[in-house]
Nucleic acid binder design. Structure first.
Lengths: 229, 229
DNA sequence: TTGACTCTCAAACAAACGTTTCATACAGTT
DNA sequence: AACTGTATGAAACGTTTGTTTGAGAGTCAA
């Protein structure tokens, strides 16, 4: 039997992406991929050289999708004041990563890649994360009226990104909270929450007003407990 | 040759904890653990039943250490006003997770567990994460003058926790930023940053002041971009 | 000394793994 | 019809995997 010229190849990619995302590179076997896809075991080696070649192909596909998300989130706020840029970015980003079933496998794959560093994590950093961080740093710097490489900016960007990622569904979050609700309105509310929280946090860094009502005096009293183990 | 009564067992645990944390359950072989520990291959099966038994033992050790961190972070702020409680919690927590070389393997193991859900992730959720979330929820609810199960509280707690975790060193963060500096002063500054950022964010949820200058009008204009792919 | 018990060791086991092989089937070209 | 290049199939390959085995070394008590 012959399936067609590229049918097998795409079937394998589709199945493998889902399986790699949910269980990782090592735990998924070539046999399982091929059985699920309904193709022969040799298909992977024929079309992709070997198992790692298949994984790399999927990783590149994920990177491309993430780049598109970056671009869309950037365009959504183009020409607006910085706080609106941030709001637009968070909104698009959260919609895609938290809500979209279409992109959920990417987040799983990435969280695994961070822990496993199986293959080229550098590709993800250079083509996705660094540009994204740079864009957000520009926004934050504008709000704070300071340079993009200011220590406060770098930290604030990390905080904003971490908050967006904190709400992507995973085995832990689904166990901690009943359900976050995937309806567009709920996601909008979530995005607005993150934006409001972050904007207030960023602005607090301007004067350090909320930072320390009792700036230094407390420190010595709690210090002893930290080292305890 | 005989090493001693419990020497082998502890050597295996020590080596395996490090290896599992850095490369995951499936990728680490029993042979490698035993070779590194300088013991026989059969030692794992003799002392722990099988490979999974060894892994579970290590996981329980990690859970116990995390519970201690929770406790220490809670005690550090006992009897203080809520914002000081939060500050104390973040300070202890960040010191242990971000700076301490002693606890770094735990974070690696957990981030892997979230992605892999190899074994009892429920144990971690029930005994560590849920109590921690509940404690933080109490603090936030006190600041916001509302119930602990308010939607804003749940979200704010998630945001605070995500910010703390965002600064634990991992392959991505070390590639994005040159170095966060592990000196106690730098960690103190980081903890203070997170606290200031979070407190401002939480307080912004009281009135929704910073939340939406242009509450709803913008939504329709950006909506089209979200779905784009 | 004897016996029971705990622990370690080298060797081997069966299963699962990624990969290779080779025959064969199809489509397009000459 | 004959040839060529591409794709698929069933079977097998050599390795690595977690685990088991059985002999033996060490310790303690009687």
């Amino acid at each position: 039997m012959k399936k067609g010229d590229r049918v097998t190849r795409e079937r394998v990619v589709s199945v493998a992406a889902r399986l790699f995302a949910s269980r990782g590179f090592k735990k998924v076997t070539v046999r399982e991929i091929c059985r699920t896809a309904g193709v022969n075991v040799a298909a992977v080696n024929y079309h992709f050289g070997n198992k790692l070649g298949l994984y790399r192909g999927i990783l590149e596909k994920a990177v491309e999708a993430m780049r598109e998300t970056n671009e869309a989130a950037r365009l959504a706020g183009e020409g607006r004041p910085p706080d609106q840029k941030l709001r637009a970015f968070v909104r698009v980003y959260v919609h895609r990563t938290v809500a979209s079933r279409q992109h959920s496998w990417i987040q799983s794959l990435m969280s695994r890649e961070i822990a496993d560093r199986t293959a080229a994590i550098d590709l993800v950093v250079e083509r996705v994360l660094r540009p994204r961080a740079a864009y957000l740093a520009g926004i934050v710097a504008e709000i704070l009226h300071c340079a993009s490489d200011d220590e406060r900016v770098v930290r604030a960007v990390t905080c904003v990104q971490s908050q967006c990622l904190a709400f992507v569904p995973n085995p832990v979050s689904s166990r901690l909270h009943p359900d976050l609700g995937g309806t567009p309105d709920a996601v909008d509310a979530l995005a607005e929450h993150i934006t409001a929280f972050s904007l207030a946090g960023i602005r607090a860094l301007r004067t350090g007003r909320a930072a320390a009502r009792r700036p230094r005096a407390r420190r010595r009293r709690t210090q002893g407990r930290v080292a305890g183990r």
